[in-house]
Design a protein around this nucleic acid. Structure first.
Lengths: 332, 332
DNA sequence: TTGTAAGCGTTATCAA
DNA sequence: TTGATAACGCTTACAA
């Protein structure tokens, strides 16, 4: 069933059918109802592909997320999908799984599919794809992680501040031996968190042994390994700051296996507030980010970009320290 | 940049360009490399919309999920996206938020976008849309929840068995006053779980007071309210079976507020194994489902439907009881 | 207010 | 092995 069929049935031209559906106000009231009735009766559904080809607009936004099972990212996807749907947009999703190559194939698929715009939480893909986007003038919003490229809209957290908040909490409790499980340095959020951590300790005149800085890839297994190394050090840290929730899950595993008492023997501060952080015993002190708000803002920003050009901006959200019971004064 | 441009640049016809890219083996080796080189140099990206219009195929699969922040569904989305991406498909996502109306607008958008197929975890949309899908011969896989319509592929859990497993565990511990927080009856999985619960108690000759059966909508708030009612009963249950993880989160809130001791005063069995269930104190005994496997299977099933017609089947996965420490013998 | 017809960027059919 | 050309199903000048 196409416009052609409807047109013949009603003795109209396809142009009129099209107008009746897209801009009803410019067709005669009675033809309009004739068309609308026929559409309802026949259950006709517009072919969006044809329309997209003609109008050069797919009303689709692509989102790339680095780990959809991480509640931080599910919240973002939820928010984006929500504003997209209510604005008549549809969302293509790609789960990069913290792997830049997946992100690259997704980006390529996205431009092939002619998405109207993309929101991405980069896993660190090759930046050459950005050029392609620019050529096709497909707007891009970087979310959570910045590419470092100038002139790209971004909505991020003040990660340095977040790390400071968490670290300072530990310092104020009296800790001197504080370690970090950092994310990979090719991601801006990991860099910023590490920097915030370092700066806070520097101003507190606390030195950081080289082996108190461990790197993971933001996934659980790497957090476990990092924690294992930290906990087997001859001079164990009395506190660990873990730079995201997945790595915290891994850290907890190590902590439990070794039967380390939290917070008596070890204080723990996490990043991102997941439901399980609250449910843990003891409940976890974390730096939390307003994930839904960030997703929503990113989607809205993209929508405004789609409606009119403007100069790129980066929107920064503020983290919040949520003190629960995983930190205490150091005993030794 | 289009085939037209490339064709002029290389003194070829658009037909040849098309062939060189889609079926390289049927063009002369040297023209082929000439074309491929030009494509690489220019960074040309195929317009998938135009191709889709011509070939009547979008290589897109739509997925509808009832609550993307629920780890059970994130795992499903992850699995589906994974098999989709590796097969050259792209996935459109809709988060119905347990609301049938959202599901309906998504379905409509999906058919407009001419998706190749859809996988849905229904929130209970109007079944009339199924007719539209059939007309356009867009295959549908029901996942986790069955529409009740015959002749529709489905991949589900043996929910009755799951509920039996959980309930029997409680019975064997000696509980006589067992309540349930059930999902909404318009969803097949909720019905089946309730049925499994009932049947198990019937064969154990344990009667269920009418007010021991509470209904929620599979979301946290409703779980809280249901638990509140249960816990304020004059004759409190000694055990509660909660039919999904979100409602369990709500139940736990009520339990904590009232300072009810688990498992001493109240035994708890949940459905779906989330990370927080393990981390809880005491760790939660749950019926678990192989979410990733189910998502993967659904995607694979859809792919085979896309490649050749066959008679619809329903694939049933087996639940597993994971005994942790939230259940004990009743004290009173 | 409606119709005619061109065109969006591909693929597929038919000839050459 | 390649080229002309007609679709695919819509939208939009322009004309009537």
């Amino acid at each position: 069933m196409t416009f052609h069929d409807l047109a013949r049935e009603l003795n109209l031209s396809t142009a009129t059918i099209s107008r009746a559906l897209s801009r009803p106000e410019i067709v005669a009231p009675q033809t309009r109802t004739r068309v609308l009735d026929a559409v309802r009766r026949s259950g006709y559904q517009m072919n969006g592909i044809a329309r997209s080809l003609r109008t050069q607009s797919t009303q689709t936004i692509g989102i790339i997320v680095s780990d959809i099972c991480n509640p931080f990212f599910s919240a973002i996807v939820k928010a984006v999908e929500d504003v997209a749907r209510t604005n008549g947009y549809t969302v293509l999703i790609c789960n990069a799984d913290e792997d830049g190559r997946n992100e690259e194939v997704a980006m390529r698929l996205f431009v092939e599919r002619q998405v109207s715009g993309v929101i991405r939480c980069s896993a660190g893909a090759n930046p050459s794809l950005l050029e392609t986007l620019r050529q096709k003038s497909i707007p891009l919003i970087d979310l959570d992680r910045q590419s470092g490229r100038p002139n790209i809209d971004a909505v991020i957290l003040n990660n340095a501040l977040g790390a400071s908040l968490g670290t300072r909490h530990l310092v104020e409790l009296g800790h001197k031996r504080i370690a970090i499980v950092s994310g990979p340095l090719h991601l801006s959020n990991a860099r910023d968190r590490l920097e915030g951590f370092r700066k806070t300790l520097r101003t507190a005149r606390i030195s950081i042994p080289r082996n108190y800085i461990e790197f993971g890839d933001f996934r659980e297994a790497s957090g476990y390994q990092a924690a294992e190394r930290l906990l087997s050090l001859p001079c164990r840290p009395t506190a660990i700051f873990v730079a995201n929730n997945e790595m915290m899950a891994g850290t907890l595993l190590a902590v439990r296996q070794r039967k380390v008492k939290v917070p008596r023997e070890l204080s723990l501060v996490g990043f991102d507030d997941a439901r399980w952080a609250r449910y843990l015993e003891p409940p976890l002190t974390v730096v939390s980010q307003p994930a839904e708000l960030m997703g929503q803002k990113a989607a809205e920003l993209l929508l405004t970009r789609l409606h009119g050009r403007a100069t790129p901006q980066t929107i920064v959200f503020e983290p919040e320290l949520i003190v629960r019971r995983s930190c205490a004064e150091p005993k030794n």
